[in-house]
């Protein structure tokens, strides 16, 4: 990954990474170094899994289970990477997932889906997600509400609305085409995992290989400089939140497929899981630096951790302690490796 090259944006922030020679190698080194820490953590976890649970861990179906579990939160985290890189934060992702899942599975939507096509449900979820993201973005960019507060408000409102619409009941999906589609596994890869892979890949390309991505880095590291460089910062911010909203919509569709339900309780604490994955992945919480690959590793580390713990019949509480320790260790390790390879 060469995320760092992208910081060589109009902001001049890249100066911090390499003033002197060694530029190219240092850049490459630090980028690889950042991910080495994560890869190492993941490998260690897998080793622990193989040692303690042997065949049950290394089994193909177990690996697919881990990937399936990582898919939903993974899609949200990829979107979150954009917003955080752009200098923002979104606390409402879990609530948006809940609202989208409820909206897409009301009796009316399901009836319409049965009459026409199951894609109606997908469209509903994406539209609701995009709408919520648009509101978040507009409040932050044009309303000048601090992102933390604007999205906190959305967190409360979206989950409340989800409860009102669903009447706090679990809405069971009965649209044959929808369930059938998500049950397929093209080339042996479950559809959910495939969607996650596509979203992650698309996210990587957009963040690293497009103008949109470069602008995201610029806006995140120094919005004023970005504005002077001719970037419409406010419009870009709205787009970032909307993008995350769409990711939440996709995640909602995935959770509907996984559980065959829509519910106001879906997506509980996704905001924390997503932010944790993004941050241990190496994205700066203050913006300006972000890595999709790191985020994907972050998600995989957490999911593998809970899988290894369950295989060994350990309690949820022990798992929470380990999760906390891993967040700290991964960040410390990353800093060390990045500093060493960065000179």
């Amino acid at each position: 990954m060469s995320e760092n090259t992208a910081t060589a944006s109009p902001t001049g922030r890249a100066a911090g990474t390499g003033i002197a020679p060694r530029r190219a190698s240092a850049l490459l080194g630090s980028a690889a170094g950042r991910n080495t820490g994560l890869v190492l953590a993941l490998v260690l976890l897998c080793l622990a899994g193989v040692v303690t649970a042997g065949d049950r861990f290394a089994d193909v179906s177990n690996v697919l289970t881990i990937l399936r579990l990582a898919s939903v939160i993974g899609v949200v985290s990829v979107g979150m990477t954009f917003v955080v890189t752009g200098g923002g934060i979104d606390l409402s992702v879990g609530a948006i997932v809940a609202l989208s899942s409820v909206w897409a599975t009301t009796l009316a939507t399901q009836a319409m889906a049965r009459d026409t096509h199951w894609l109606v449900m997908v469209f509903a979820a994406l539209a609701v997600g995009a709408g919520c993201g648009l509101v978040n973005g507009t409040l932050v960019a044009y309303g000048r509400v601090v992102a933390f507060i604007a999205t906190l408000a959305m967190l409360a409102a979206a989950r409340g609305l989800a409860e009102i619409i669903s009447n706090r009941k679990t809405q069971i999906v009965d649209v044959p085409g929808f369930t059938a589609f998500w049950d397929t596994s093209p080339l042996g890869v479950p559809m959910l995992v495939l969607v996650f892979a596509v979203v992650a890949l698309a996210g990587w390309v957009v963040l690293n290989r497009t103008t949109f991505g470069r602008r995201t880095y610029a806006v995140g590291s120094n919005p004023e400089a970005a504005r002077l460089a001719g970037i419409d910062v406010r419009r870009h911010t709205v787009l970032l939140y909307t993008l995350l909203g769409i990711c939440c919509g996709i995640a909602a569709v995935m959770i509907i497929a996984r559980t065959t339900t829509g519910s106001a309780t879906h997506g509980g604490l996704y905001e924390l899981d997503a932010i944790a994955a993004v941050v241990i992945g190496g994205t700066l919480l203050s913006g300006g630096r972000g890595t999709i690959a790191g985020t994907v590793f972050g998600v995989l580390i957490f999911t593998t951790l809970s899988n290894v713990f369950t295989l060994n019949n350990l309690s949820i509480s022990a798992q929470a302690v380990a999760k906390g320790a891993i967040i700290v260790l991964a960040v410390l390790l990353q800093q060390r490796l990045a500093r060493r390879s960065g000179g």
Partner: peptide, 22 residues
């Protein structure tokens, strides 16, 4: 084998998926 969920559909799915592998 014992796992714990959170009374929600989503958490039940997650816990059971891991349990079945365990």
């Amino acid at each position: 084998n014992r796992v714990a969920a959170e009374f929600t559909v989503e958490s039940g799915e997650r816990a059971a998926a891991n349990l079945l592998q365990a």
